Structures are given as structure tokens and as C-alpha cells.
Amino acid sequence: MKSVRFISSIAAVGLLALIGCSKDNESSGSMSKMEVRLIDGPGDYKAVNLDVQSVQVHVKDGDDEKGWENFALINPRSYNVMEYVNGNSALLASADFPAGRISQIRLVLGPNNTVTLKNGQVKPLTTPSGQTSGLKLKIDADITRDVTYQLVLDFDVAKSIVARGNGEYNLKPVIRTFTTAIAGGIKGKVSPVSQPQILVIRNAAPIDTFSTSPNAEGGFLVRGLAAGSYRVEFWNNNALYSNSTKQATVTNEQIADLGTVELK
């Protein structure tokens, strides 16, 4: 387990736009996509509810407060972490994110943290640094442009809930963090610039189809594709150009580049 500590003051940070789609209709430049997910290790309780209010990621080395970026949460609320075991997870945030190194993550909890004991009794969970504590965790991961990543917070219930001996409980979160690439994608450019519909079709089961269209410069990007072989079809509404088909192979942590696709 990685060691953690509480930070009592939270600096103002820049807000990242929340993006929930798995595909884009234009090249994202130096951006990748990041999902923040919460999972849990089992514990001897009925429920452990965490009041998750904010997730912040540090994009610079060291502890410079200017290096923190804020993820807009999909739904700031209380999460029963014991529901997220055996492959289940809670999606806390999903956003475009600058490619590069991320060094730390900070999880900000609200005041409504509780544990439900086996007998059904609900107890408040108190933290050493108060209700607005920020839990800071080490990450140290390199994020590649155009790739989709999952940043996973693995909450250890058994070690995080501490009985105080007077019938009350403290919350001292022990969280393991890891970052994985979950999918690659396909990008390219159409020439001459037109607005064909682009269909990306997985060649093997399960057969999935994704659609997009090029931007004003002809560039296109489809992200969030599982590894495998794909057929890329260009369907033109313009009678001057015929339809075209290309093949692409996608791997994790890689964007397959079709280069310039000539429409004739």
C-alpha cells in the first residue's frame, strides 16, 4: 500500500471540461482522456459511505499548488465503496487531459462519511484533519496523447476504518493507486477536405460500430477503441467522390494513424 497523508487547505484550481464520450470528431492535439474510478477491497461492514466532493490531479513535479487540475465530477455524492468489488467500479470523473506526467492525485471528501456495522448501526466517520480534508496520493504516471486511461483508486476498507475504543470510528483512508491504458484509437486526415461520414467497425465479435466526421482541416480521431482489427469506411454525400475503405489495427497505448486518406 502506498502511504497517504491529509492536507488541510485546498488551493483554487482550473476547471477541466467534462467530456463523457468515447470518440471525438477531430484530432485532440496533445490531449488524452482520463477516467477516475473507485474500487474497494472487502471489509467486515455492511456499508462504508464516502462523501466524494472533488478529484484533483497534479501535473507538475513537487508540491507546487499551481500544478493541481480539477476534474469535474460526474456526480458529487456519497459512494458506498463496498458495492465496488469483483470487477465493479464507480466512475467519478471522465475528462480530456493534457498528455505528459502526472505525479499526484488529491481526493477531497465532504462531511457525510459513515460506516454501517453488521448489526445495522450507522456510525459517523471522523478524519484527523476535519471535514474538508484532501487526501493526497502518489501516482507518477506518463500519459500518452490520444490514449484513454483509467486512474483507479483502490480503497482498502479493512485498513481504513479504525475503531476508537469508545464505540466511535475514524476514517484514515488507505488507498492504492494505479493507472492503466484501457484503449487506443484511430486517427487520420481526409483529402481533399470534405465532410464524409466515417464509420469505424470492429472486424471480430463483439461487432461494434463508431462514427465520426472530419474537422475543418480534414482531421479525424476516434478514441476509446478496444485492441483489435477495424474496418474504416468513408461514406461521401458529395457525388464528386466515391466511398473508400481502409483497414487498421488498434492496440492499447497506441493510436493507429491512417495518414492522409485520398478521396477520389
Score class of each variant (00 low, 15 high):
P196D: 07
Q195A: 12
V200H: 11
A204H: 07
A205G: 04
S160Q: 07
V193G: 03
I198V: 05
R202W: 10
R176G: 13
V200P: 06
G165A: 06
A158I: 03
K187T: 03
A158C: 01
D208T: 12
L171C: 07
I207N: 14
P206Q: 11
A163H: 07
S160F: 02
A163W: 05
G167F: 08
I201R: 15
N170F: 01
T179M: 14
S194R: 02
I207T: 14
V162P: 04
F210W: 13
L171S: 06
V190M: 04
N170R: 09
A205W: 09
I175H: 08
L199D: 12
R176A: 12
K159I: 01
K159Y: 01
V162Q: 12
T179W: 00
P196T: 14
A205S: 15
T179Y: 02
G167A: 04
P196V: 13
A181Y: 07
L199E: 12
I175G: 07
V190Y: 05
F178A: 04
N170M: 11
A158E: 13
I207L: 15
I198P: 08
K172N: 13
Q197T: 15
P192D: 02
T209K: 11
I207G: 02
K172A: 08
N203E: 14
T179R: 00
K159W: 00
R164S: 10
K187I: 02
L171N: 08
V200F: 07
V174S: 11
N166A: 02
P173K: 11
I182R: 02
I182L: 10
Q195G: 10
P173V: 01
F178N: 14
T179I: 10
L171M: 09
K159R: 15
G185S: 04
A158T: 14
S160M: 06
